[in-house]
């Protein structure tokens, strides 16, 4: 059996097969796969015995449920007012410059993706960003370079695929 199909089956066993279990299942797949492929959305529809269109409709509503292929680490920089006032744009430029990709893209080795997001709720420690589920605050271009180097080193040392 395909690993995604197996994952979906396990998630459905864990959460249940009702409509109100759909979101946790979608989240579980994104946690592992980093995005929802058409294949996994169809598989979820089949597993929960509902229309694939309904799964697609729900999945595409939520900004954290990506439906195109993402990198292993998704960087989400807050762009809402407090962070933007404290220079989130400079931070974004520093990241783009370091990873050599622009907003919305994924590095060719599939490690990082850069996205912008709305208020993360760290306005008093702006600017803030998320890398997967980890929060980083009070960012500066220097600080963000350090953080990213840390991640890059971790990958070089061959850290096992967490999450």
């Amino acid at each position: 059996m395909n690993t995604v199909t197996e994952l979906i089956k396990n998630l459905a066993d864990q959460h249940g097969r009702q409509r109100n279990n759909l979101l946790p299942i979608l989240q579980g797949v994104v946690e592992q796969e980093k995005y929802l492929s058409e294949f996994s959305m169809k598989a979820i529809a089949k597993e929960l015995d509902m229309s694939a269109a309904e799964v697609f409709g729900t999945a595409t509503f939520y900004s954290f449920l990506e439906h195109k292929k993402m990198g292993r680490y998704i960087i989400r920089i807050c762009k809402t007012i407090s962070c933007s006032m404290k220079g989130s744009n400079q931070v974004l430029l520093a990241i783009e410059d370091m990873l050599k990709i622009s907003l919305g893209e994924t590095t060719t080795d599939g490690t990082f993706s850069i996205l912008q997001t709305n208020c993360l709720g760290f306005c008093h420690q702006a600017p803030a960003m998320l890398i997967n589920n980890e929060v980083y605050t009070d960012l500066t271009p220097e600080k963000v370079r350090e953080i990213l180097s840390m991640y890059i080193n971790k990958i070089k040392e061959g850290a096992p695929n967490e999450n």
Binding site: R19, L22, L23, P24, L26, T58, Y62, S63, N118, C119
Partner: peptide
């Protein structure tokens, strides 16, 4: 119950919809 990055789900009825596995409308 975890949300997935939709501001509108803070609206109470959208939140119910979201918990019921639907679009947060």
């Amino acid at each position: 119950f975890m949300g997935s990055g939709a501001y509108i789900c803070g609206e109470e009825t959208a939140l119910f919809e979201s918990m019921e596995g639907k679009r947060g409308e």
